[in-house]
Design a protein around this nucleic acid. Structure first.
Lengths: 198, 198
DNA sequence: ATAAAACAAACGATCGTTTGGTAAACGCAC
DNA sequence: GTGCGTTTACCAAACGATCGTTTGTTTTAT
């Protein structure tokens, strides 16, 4: 019986540098964008030769997709955990926004890549990037669906507005002034409360 | 008496192709990003040789800045005109958001470049891009300052949230479904009305 | 005639990627 | 545990293509 060609015959070695490659790729994609970060930039950051990256990835597009997928995975996990601790729909949405924004701004570079790199920047990977991000956004669709809203309110627009405001925060946010938790909470508060006169 | 070296000695010729260069550069920067659109791409679109662009611009950064500045100029003018027709502060803000989003999505490519291209994409032009965009955003600062708001509301966060939601719209908007006017109005409506229970 | 606006041709640098070879970590038999 | 064959994970060196830009010359509207 034939073995599938993709079957791994042995476990990865303990000294392989794939994790470091992903880390440095994430850092450079975030700082310089997809096209601005060259394969040579990345390989230099992990003290390897440019061609050596192609043992782990068949091309630069695939490397981006790997980093992007890890970013989506981290954001998803953070939001899932934050939401699980609450029961009230508005509190769940608020917790999700806080987790989303913190994963986007604070920690590593993976989350930032998801927002910084736009699918059109990497035509060969665009479809996969859109699919990854779309899968994540289903989470917010459910959270908004659970809200008790007045009859006229459009839930789709509400979701897009909130996610847009959160994602754009990356453009102007600088660490040290406002913190992500406070920003996200204020966004939700501005939506909940009445601002304009009847 | 000496002439300043920058003095033009004669008016530009009637057949000069500078406007077309800017148009095509805007189109390509919007479609492929700053780094994704090469000087050769742009020159090919206007049927010129790559080097010929350097008669009009000393480098690619300057070309981007010229396109970007024209984009900011168009958005600013559209918002100014829309606001001038209204007196009520909320109506003025709503009109500004509609104009902003329409200038961003509908017409030519200049407005889209302002949102699509991030300053970090062009390190040599980053300072000038930030300055151009910052000057424009003062408009919204004034509009938000004029709103009658409850005591606790943070006007800065409100401005950033609204502009963020508007700017991010470019990421998911596709012509034909929702139109920009309706989207912008719904964003403002979601802020004005009370969504959550006290 | 003069200066604007382009052509023609090339510069070195850097791009993503391929190819062939090699050292060392690993699984397994003993 | 020791030795051995296998496979992982990389090096070394180059490929052609494309990048932004420069230089000298020519055309053409004014």
């Amino acid at each position: 019986m034939l073995q599938p060609v993709s079957a791994k015959l042995r476990a990865p070695r303990a000294d392989n540098r794939l994790p470091r490659i992903l880390d440095e790729a994430a850092r450079l994609f975030r700082a310089k964008g997809y096209q601005g970060a060259s394969v040579r930039d990345i390989s230099r950051s992990v003290d390897m030769l440019p061609g050596s990256l192609y043992y782990h990835f068949s091309n630069k597009d695939d490397l981006l997709v790997a980093v992007y997928a890890e970013g989506v995975r981290r954001i998803t996990q953070a939001v899932r955990e934050a939401v699980a601790a609450k029961t009230d729909p508005w509190e769940r949405l608020e917790a999700a926004c806080v987790a989303h924004l913190e994963a986007l701004l604070d920690p590593g570079d993976y989350g930032q890549v998801v927002i910084r790199v736009r699918p059109a920047d990497a035509p060969g990977a665009a479809d996969r990037l859109v699919a990854l991000r779309g899968g994540y956004e289903k989470l917010f669709r459910d959270l908004v669906a659970a809200l008790p809203l007045p009859a006229g309110a459009d839930r789709k627009t509400l979701r897009l507005m909130l996610l847009g405001a959160l994602n754009w925060t990356q453009t102007w946010y600088r660490p040290g002034r406002l913190n992500p938790r406070r920003i996200a909470r204020q966004y939700v508060a501005l939506l909940r409360q009445q601002l304009g006169a009847g």
